[in-house]
């Protein structure tokens, strides 16, 4: 994959607002056909990074190349080939569903017939055809979000950027949207997304990075990250006794306390689980697969951010 020229090459990307540094010198590259995830707690700097990608925020320092071209000097040309779904729903409430797509198509200089055809195709694909004449406030949250993604695809972009496309949706809408994104990815579209849903990020993203306080904590393929930071399994023990803690310490097994629970991270879950459940478990203990969420919480901590 690395032989290909990157779609996005960011080096030392920095965004400051006055004295505050929102993005603190991050370096990453995204390659064609890849789905790349930005994960991180609120305020990590994900949206600020994305806003630099389409020129909304000028860079404070660093360099940014998209499609091999310096963004600052080629902003307009680059924007023709990017589709952006911003974090806020900023559909045009003065226009109908279909008009939202057609008016956006005009910003990309699509001629009328082509815009009509493309809008039709996208309304079909996202299941919005029966709502094509509705006003935006008449749409459910899930429909609005699908329309924002449809709008981001109107120019047939080479790169699709999605900032929290599924936040605030009910599970049905969320799964429906993820299903659509999977289909787009299968067609070879390069996708960059941010999300708070770890399970979906783990399924969708070829690679991802976890950010906090404007910096990249880790970057890699989801399974590699789980293997590297957690191991294969997690054993959860309710109200662990002192003996168990001593045993783990003696064996050098990593663990973490979360209020009344102990989380034990291990590569070799079953043998250890049998031993713990027989000897040290009084209140209840379970063995489960390690997830990306474990990695995320281990790296970014469990404290609230807002």
């Amino acid at each position: 994959m690395t032989q290909l020229a990157p779609v996005i090459a960011a080096a030392n990307l920095t965004k400051r607002f006055g004295d505050f540094t929102a993005v603190d010198g991050i370096t990453f590259a995204i390659f064609p056909g890849e789905c790349f995830g930005f994960l991180g707690p609120n305020g990590a700097g994900k949206t600020s990074t994305i806003r630099m990608l389409y020129g909304f925020y000028p860079l404070s320092a660093g360099s940014l190349e998209i499609f091999g071209r310096d963004l600052h000097h080629n902003l307009r040309e680059v924007k023709y080939k990017i589709g952006v779904c911003q974090q806020d729903n900023n559909l045009d409430p003065d226009l109908s569903v279909r008009e939202n797509l057609l008016v956006f198509a005009r910003y990309f200089d699509l001629v009328r017939e082509k815009a009509e055809a493309r809008a039709q195709e996208l309304l079909d694909f996202f299941g919005l055809i029966h709502k094509q004449d509705a006003r935006i406030p008449e749409l459910s949250g899930g429909m609005q979000r699908r329309l924002v993604v449809a709008r981001a695809l109107i120019n047939d972009p080479t790169l699709l950027v999605l900032d929290e496309p599924t936040t605030g949706l009910d599970p049905q809408s969320r799964h429906q949207l993820w299903e659509k994104l999977r289909q787009l990815k299968a067609r070879g579209l390069c996708i960059l997304l941010t999300t708070h849903y770890m399970d979906e990020a783990a399924q969708m993203c070829d690679r991802l990075m976890i950010m906090d306080q404007g910096r990249i904590l880790v970057e890699g393929a989801p399974l590699d990250l789980i293997g590297r930071y957690i191991g294969g399994n997690v054993i959860e023990v309710e109200e662990p006794g002192g003996e168990l803690l001593e045993f783990l310490k003696g064996e050098g097994i990593s663990s973490e306390t979360e209020s009344t629970r102990l989380l034990i991270y291990t590569a070799d879950g079953e043998a250890l689980f049998r031993r713990i459940s027989q000897q040290y478990c009084s209140a209840g203990c379970t063995l489960r697969q390690a997830t990306l969420e474990d990695v995320f919480l281990k790296l970014t901590g469990r404290g609230l951010r807002e």
């Binding site: 389409y54 020129g55 909304f56 307009r76 924007k79 911003q86 806020d88």
Partner: peptide, 14 residues
């Protein structure tokens, strides 16, 4: 309120 300009800034317009 409508953030219309934000949306348009992601297109070729400045």
């Amino acid at each position: 309120y409508q953030k219309t300009f934000d949306a348009i800034l992601a297109t070729p317009l400045n």
